[in-house]
Design a protein around this nucleic acid. Structure first.
Lengths: 242, 242
DNA sequence: CCACTGTAACGAACATGTTCGTGACGAACA
DNA sequence: TGTTCGTCACGAACATGTTCGTTACAGTGG
């Protein structure tokens, strides 16, 4: 039913503006900024567009499709890191990515299950690939690495999003309760490390995880490729393979 | 309203079995096995328990709470790897974890947004910590590493779950369309690596990602800890720190 | 025994996502 | 001009998650 490149609206008839995918997404973004993601419902959106919710399905396949577009749009505010080693720039770019996910409660969690779709996300991928390969990472390996990096950033953002503060507290409580009831003879590591499991700030864990990944990627050949010699420059200029 | 340790059922009155959290979860599991996760709805569950859906909220806070318990229950079938290096055992354990997530469509995706809650998940954490520390990983670092490892396994499972076959095909199609329309002058890396981005099987990418993480964890100190010397034994026996 | 409190059980109501069917209308064709 | 086909617009209907209010009953204290 949906998914046509550019559906041509027929709604010129009663002096209403014709609908379009861009209008739907644009209005969704306005709603996001004004009222938050939870308020970006099909019904709320339709009301804002002076139509019925069923009409929106001509332009967006479902809410996931809508969310994918919304996620892409907010990525339009990503900044471009320009200083530091290529690793620093990867870390800075993905730190900014999480900042974007934090701009509205619920965005991060949505990003866990829905991949952004659109030009901004494409640009982000391109930038990550450029930094990785520019830093000497084997291109094929870089292609797999971007998944890992983005998944980590997304998961960390979701874990530490403001919206989930209450849920986090509940999680922490639950973990503490679990640890308190655990038998140290059956779960020695958990009882010993309960506090460690929930320690560290969001930015600390994000940064560390990204460093872990970058280090590991540099050292771990892909299973389906020829064995390549280790070739990452510790702090090379990224432009070299631009 | 919910969350009491052991709500005492009042449903003895009209000759119905008393409800309990265990009964709710057990019935949810039966439904999962018989009809799949999509059919584990509050209404379906209530019907199976001969009650009304609103009654379930005495025993489970919401569907996320229910899902957390269901996820934990299915983790009861995890096997314990016993051969190979400690790294191999981590990989084997988490590969089995994804196998469990694959037993029912939708489980993996649910695991992205809901952390399992219960004894089986606790055991899994304990086992991972034991393997990591037994392998020489600094305990504090291991505490942070389990998050990374589980997040990667979950994300990979969600990416490759059978349920999402159609969605995957759509994603691949979209990525291919994107790559086909990209200007190689603005997006040289994406156009060059489009096929690579979607290459590899689920198991290959899972394995590689885990190896990447294990290598990176071994080499990357936590930002909030004292500098520790590198101390991972390449293939030590895990029992040494048991 | 009575009064009060707390809570399990659960229906009614509401919000939300989505599908299906129907009307309106433009384009193409005879 | 009339007819057919394709598609936008969108209401009605349905499934689902959840909240709120009410009833019945157990437990406790005076």
């Amino acid at each position: 039913m949906t998914g046509r490149a550019h559906p041509t609206s027929r709604r010129e008839r009663p002096a209403k503006p014709a609908l379009s995918r861009a209008a739907v997404i644009s209005t969704a973004l306005d709603l996001l900024h004004a009222e938050g993601l939870d308020r970006v419902t099909m019904r709320r959106l339709a009301t804002a567009l002076d139509t019925g919710p069923a009409s929106l399905y001509v332009y967006v396949r479902n809410t996931a499709d809508l969310h994918a577009a919304v996620l892409d749009a907010v990525l339009g505010t990503l900044t471009t890191p320009t200083t530091g080693t290529w690793q620093d720039r990867v870390v800075a770019l993905l730190t900014d990515y999480t900042r974007v996910l934090f701009t509205h409660p619920g965005l991060a969690k949505t990003a866990l299950v829905t991949r952004p779709d659109g030009p901004h996300y494409t640009d982000l991928l391109e930038r990550l690939l450029a930094l990785l390969t520019g830093g000497g990472v084997d291109p094929g390996r870089a292609a797999w690495a971007v998944d890992l990096l983005l998944a980590h950033a997304t998961a960390t953002a979701a874990e530490h999003a403001d919206r989930d503060r209450a849920e986090q507290a509940a999680d922490l409580d639950r973990l503490r309760r679990t640890a308190a009831t655990l038998d140290p003879t059956t779960h020695p590591h958990l009882t010993a490390l309960a506090d460690d499991l929930v320690s560290g700030t969001g930015p600390q864990r994000l940064d560390w995880g990204l460093r872990v990944l970058l280090t590991g990627v540099a050292a771990t050949p892909r299973p389906d490729q020829h064995q390549e010699p280790p070739c990452t420059s510790p702090s090379s200029e990224p432009g070299s393979a631009g």
